[in-house]
Amino acid sequence: MDVQTLGITVLWTFLYGYLVVASIDFGAGFYAFYSKYTKRDHLTNKLIFRYLSPVWEVTNVFFVFFFVGLVGFFPDTAYYYGTALLVPASIVLVLIAIRGSFYAFANYGSNDSMFYTFLYGATGLLIPAAMSTTLTISQGGFMRKTEETVTFLGTKLFTNFYSWTVVLLAVVSVLYISAMFLLYYADKAKDDPARDLVRKWALFWSGPTILACALVFFGLKNQAAWHYENILNGNWWWFAASFVFFVIAVTLVYLKKNYGLAFLAVMAQYAVAWFGYGYTHLPYILYPYIDINKAVVNETMATALVVVFIFGLLLLIPALYLILRLFLFDNDYVSGKHSKKA
């Protein structure tokens, strides 16, 4: 594997990690608000926050890792995306900032007002919606390059049908992934009322998810023919496999069986679709300007980054294992026996 493929694979894997952990977090934010609004928060919110409290900062680091690594491996991305996306990226940043800090204020500053919860819930849907548009932009057609600058064609993106289907997919996926996870967590906590409520959410969002997937898939044909061609040329099976995992996950939930396995199936469903999408997107990071083969950083730096990455993983994996063991796989903690804090 050449170094640019290795680099993009690593980054794409971390972005997948972010997709999963952040979806759980974003969706949970929305559910926390929704339950509070419908006065059912006594059922679910303890559970939600018991999981989120120790891990929210870790979630954020996944994102930081991705964009720092992207600029490191492919410095041209800083130039193109940086110049073009000043406004949309700044708005996302403000939303992330409000969300992260208000979460901490509410949770540690002992103030769970409706307003904080509302902010937390609303940003939970707005952020993934806004972030997902970068995927649309990467398909090409939304930037104009001249001698001295790159401009972003915002209105074009805003009025583009395909771009809205991607936004829709992002939002419903967040709700679906999150509900599936919370279902597993509630079941593990043996919290039956919460589990029954969350199970309804999970089933409810499964239909829209698969519908939005189909819309995006077929919308691609008009939007980015080059990408669609790549998929049809022997790469459609990624998406077929994704559908199979979807069916497995929903069936298990419907039959009230093995929610842990169901959540793994959800992760697999998104993993194959995500890597299929990424693989067929290559060699472009931004069509047609950034091609990984031309935009890759010099070889010395690339090698240094890979070496650091390997050492980093050696540190990280045991640490992640520890946090999961203490907060996800520890039955006492999950069911609330150890939830005291500092």
Binding site: V308, G312, L316, F327
Partner: peptide
């Protein structure tokens, strides 16, 4: 990106490390 990306990248691992153990420490 061509010259000084290395410590920026290392920094993200330091963040990971800190974030994970802070989560554990607190609870």
């Amino acid at each position: 990106g061509q010259t000084i990306a290395l410590p920026l990248f290392m920094e993200t691992f330091a963040f990971f490390f800190e974030a994970i153990f802070l989560g554990i420490y607190l609870y």
